[in-house]
């Protein structure tokens, strides 16, 4: 396959960026999108040019490191991560636009790499369970009803890639935050911090400069892990419950 790439190039965080056009040839339909970018970078290095910087790690679709807005879609046209997107999803001769996640809370570090530590700080605000560490407890010591376990697991699938923020017209992190809140709040292990978790995580989310939810639904459409939009409804419910409880104290 022969492709024309238009890639966002930006030297540094404070530098101006622009789309640069590159031609790549000899691309196999079985290559992943990142392998295609590797091919481009090999050529750029051989020519003595600066390779395109992009985030990647496991390349198995489970770590949440890869990003990229491809032709206006977070993680491209398929509902998966960019590393699991294959070139067979494109046609020979296509022009592909590659841009970084766009949100003021995710500043561009270089080219296609953005700083997602805002997500880490949201997790630090309450995305954990305070439990005594040590040997793993007996699995049946705490009973969890099956529907609750399924609900928690569905939300635990979130890999924190930030596609929800990238797709949201308001740059909101509601889907990410709600996945974490719902995951822990439904479980007995998460119960002691149920109220503080949602209040602190939402407060941190606002603090980081993410936008608000207008229920456009773009986040859930872009999510490679299929976190549903109704997750946000669940978090709103938890937030209202926690606010009411906190006011009674």
């Amino acid at each position: 396959m022969k492709l024309t790439l238009r890639v966002w190039r930006q030297r540094a965080a404070d530098a101006d960026g622009a789309m640069s056009t590159y031609e790549v040839d000899g691309i196999s339909a079985d290559m992943s999108f990142l392998e295609m970018l590797d091919t481009l970078n090999e050529e750029l290095i051989l020519k003595g040019e600066d390779p395109v910087a992009f985030d990647h790690d496991c390349r198995e679709g489970i770590c949440g490191a890869c990003s990229l807005v491809i032709n206006g879609d977070a993680h491209g046209p398929e509902r998966t991560t960019t590393c699991q997107l294959h070139m067979r999803s494109f046609a020979d001769g296509d022009t592909i636009d590659v841009e970084p996640w766009r949100a003021s809370a995710f500043p561009v570090v270089k080219d296609l790499v953005v700083d997602r530590s805002a997500f880490d700080r949201i997790i630090q605000a309450g995305g954990y369970v305070t439990a005594p560490t040590g040997a793993a407890p007996e699995a049946h010591a705490t009973a969890v009803p099956k529907p609750d376990a399924d609900f928690a697991f569905e939300h635990a699938e979130c890999i924190g890639c930030g596609a929800c923020v990238a797709a949201c017209p308001n740059g909101a992190a509601m889907l990410f935050t709600s996945a974490k809140v719902n995951h822990l709040n439904v479980l007995p292990q998460g119960a002691p911090e149920r109220e503080t978790r949602v209040l602190d995580m939402v407060a941190q989310m606002d603090e980081e400069g993410f936008g608000g939810c207008t229920l456009a639904g773009e986040c859930a459409t872009a999510c490679p892990k299929g976190i549903p939009l109704v997750s946000i409804t669940g978090m709103n419910k938890e937030w209202l419950r926690a606010t009411r409880k906190a006011s009674r104290r």
Partner: peptide, 23 residues
């Protein structure tokens, strides 16, 4: 105001997003 501040840079590749009522 918060929403607009959160997304200061638009994507170069534009797509029609969300329903008419939402937009």
């Amino acid at each position: 105001r918060r929403d607009i501040r959160a997304r200061p840079n638009k994507y170069v590749h534009k797509k029609a997003r969300a329903s008419y009522a939402t937009r």
